[in-house]
């Protein structure tokens, strides 16, 4: 497997804050590599060092075999970039932005085709200010794809999007990967990292605390699947005793949770339901729950990530 990005001992200090503190990782070609972490974890700083926008205080980096500082100019023709805080002039039209930016590259992708591919065709004459959040993000993806890049950096691409627009964006990014491009993205949505990324690096206060596939990270928790249900009134003690023979029981008011050993919930579900059927207890809202990347994140960083659905 070829590596697209090599980071070794990256260090970036602002004042007396170690924004990125000695982190090392590789990004494989053709994967979606996600950096997750709470605000201030160092996600954007890391990605901006790789883009050549920030100069690291120590450590070495190779992006597509080039040094982001020394070979900045060459690299800019090979990488697509979407920045977290960046806009276009309000009155610039969609087609003008694409036409202008494609003139910056030697062999640009066909922007007319990108426009159609990203579903922006009917907005081609619209000024930037008139675009919805999702349309703006799609335009930024289009601009990032203009150099026909081998590597695409996406910084908090889906922040501020509604859930539907976010899911559409995931499909879009998967499509880009399936064309053989490497994608490096940051997000603070655990659900997004779990569903979209091939591998995930978890950053916390500048440190790399975990790096693996979402599945492996979840498995590393060593927690089995759970069956969760509610009972009418307080749960009788004999129910607890019976359930404890099946798995680890947690009772919180009228809510009961049974956690099994295996990560697959099927057998646990059969056991719990047949036990409930034999008992006189009235239950409702029964469902299974798998551990998620959110749980991994909680365990590793001790803080809750921001919710996937913003108000």
């Amino acid at each position: 497997m070829n590596t697209a990005v090599v980071v070794d001992g990256l260090l970036k200090i602002y004042g007396d804050v170690r924004a990125v503190d000695d982190i090392s990782f590789d990004v494989h070609e053709g994967e979606i590599f996600g950096i997750v972490g709470p605000n201030g974890a160092g996600k954007t700083t890391t990605i901006e060092c790789l883009e050549g926008l920030r100069k690291p205080d120590a450590g070495s980096m190779l992006v597509l075999g080039l040094d982001p500082q020394r070979d900045r100019r060459a690299l800019r023709g090979l990488c697509g970039v979407q920045l977290q805080h960046s806009t276009l002039p309000e009155r610039l039209k969609v087609w003008e932005a694409l036409d202008l930016y494609s003139s910056f590259y030697e062999h640009p992708a066909n922007w007319e085709r990108l426009l159609a591919h990203l579903g922006l065709e009917d907005r081609r004459g619209a000024p930037f200010a008139a675009l919805s959040g999702g349309q703006r993000q799609r335009l930024f993806v289009a601009l990032a794809l203009l150099p026909d890049p081998r590597l695409v950096f996406l910084d908090e691409l889906t922040t501020g999007l509604d859930p539907q627009a976010r899911r559409d964006t995931w499909d879009l990014i998967r499509g880009v990967r399936d064309e053989g491009k490497t994608i490096m993205l940051t997000t603070h949505f655990m659900e997004e990292a779990e569903r979209l990324c091939d591998r995930v690096a978890i950053l916390d206060r500048g440190h790399l605390v975990a790096l693996d596939t979402p599945e492996a990270l979840i498995a590393s928790l060593g927690r089995g699947a759970r069956v969760v249900f509610a009972v009418d009134g307080p749960a009788p003690p004999e129910l607890r005793d019976a359930l404890e023979r099946i798995g680890q029981v947690q009772i919180d008011g009228d809510r009961v949770s049974v956690q099994g050993q295996a990560s697959d919930a099927s057998q646990l579900l059969v056991d719990v339901v047949s036990l409930l059927a034999r008992s006189v207890v009235q239950y409702r809202d029964l469902r299974t729950a798998q551990p998620t990347l959110e749980d991994v994140f909680l365990k590793l960083t001790g803080s809750r990530s921001e919710r996937g659905d913003e108000p």
Binding site: R76, V81, L83, H85, S86, T87, L88, P89, F104, Y105
Partner: peptide, 16 residues
């Protein structure tokens, strides 16, 4: 305004 809105920064990521 171009600086404040990140227009300049976005340009910085291109070869121009």
């Amino acid at each position: 305004a171009y600086r404040e809105q990140g227009v300049l920064r976005r340009l910085q990521t291109t070869p121009v």
